[in-house]
Structure formats: structure tokens, C-alpha cells
């Protein structure tokens, strides 16, 4: 019995570690493009830094983050950083209407069923994630204020 206990403990430890790593690595999930953005997947975007932002048309701080994301995309364009924004609006029309009045210099995707949001365990709106070229989440942020923008830029500068 005592002989069995040690392998069970080791197996349990290894499995729990594997689960933790898996939770922080982005799997190859499809991304459905909105307006001018083409469909793609996280697998195809591997090899570059991704700033992933979950937003919704009914979320006021999300609206405030759009000029920041435009700036982010333009400033880090040549540094292998791509900004992608994922709308969790339940209808495409609501997201398209929002985009009509808010300029986007970055790719925009649609997640009407919240599948991606669920995978990322989004705790609030907006939520943003910095993903390294290996597909690992290295930074998470919830909400958006002016301070958030400075913090995110600092983290990206340090990470690159």
C-alpha cells in the first residue's frame, strides 16, 4: 500500500501541473471575422505577440479602450504585435453598428455564443490578454481606464 502511495502522489502532482499549464496556453480556436476582418484561428496567429481584447457594444469602458487599441496597433505594428478585438455581442448587427461609429486599425472578431470568452474565463468586460509568440498568456487585465493603457504599454515594452 505504501509502495502505491508514492506513484499516486507523483502522478497527481504531474497531472495538476499539466492542467495549470494548459489553462494558460491558448488552444487553436477559430476566429470569425467581423466587417473587413478575415476568418482565421489562434493557431494561424502563432509566432507573433497578440493583444486580445474582449469587448461588447453595451460596455462603456470598452468604447474608451478603442482609441488606445488603435494607438497600440500603430505604435507596435513593426514589432510583431497584433491587436485583436473579440466582440461578445449576441448579434452581429449590434457589433457592426458599434464599429460604424468607432474606428478600428486592428482586427475584429465575433464570439456571439461566448465560446472564446468562456475558454479565456473572462472575468469582466473589457478583459485583455497579452499572448506571447508561443501561445502562452503572459498578462491579463480587467476593465479599462487611462492608467490601464499606461500599464499595458509598460508590460508590452518589458515583454518584447
Amino acid at each position: 500500500m505504501r509502495n502505491l502511495l508514492k506513484p499516486i502522489c507523483i502522478a497527481f502532482f504531474v497531472l495538476s501541473t499539466a492542467f495549470t499549464v494548459n489553462a494558460e496556453t491558448v488552444e487553436d480556436m477559430p476566429l470569425t471575422g467581423l466587417v473587413d476582418t478575415q476568418d482565421t484561428s489562434f493557431g494561424q496567429l502563432k509566432g507573433q505577440w497578440l493583444y486580445v481584447d474582449f469587448w461588447a457594444s453595451w460596455c462603456i469602458p470598452c468604447k474608451k479602450s478603442f482609441p488606445f487599441m488603435n494607438e497600440l496597433q500603430n505604435v507596435f505594428k513593426d514589432k510583431n504585435v497584433r491587436v485583436i478585438a473579440i466582440s461578445v455581442d449576441d448579434t452581429e448587427a449590434a457589433a457592426v453598428k458599434f464599429l460604424k461609429y468607432n474606428k478600428t486599425d486592428f482586427w475584429v472578431f465575433h464570439d456571439p455564443k461566448g465560446k472564446l470568452a468562456s475558454e479565456f474565463k473572462v472575468p469582466g468586460m473589457p478583459s485583455s490578454y497579452l499572448i506571447n509568440p508561443e501561445g502562452e498568456i503572459v498578462y491579463k487585465h480587467v476593465g479599462f481606464t487611462e492608467e490601464s493603457g499606461n500599464e499595458i504599454i509598460n508590460v508590452i515594452n518589458k515583454s518584447l
Partner: peptide, 10 residues
């Protein structure tokens, strides 16, 4: 209600 579903409440 998940955070991404809260639009329904509005």
C-alpha cells in the same frame, strides 16, 4: 450570468 452575457440584462 457570465460577464459576456450581461448585455442581456441591459
Amino acid at each position: 450570468v457570465q460577464p459576456w452575457e450581461k448585455g442581456n440584462l441591459a
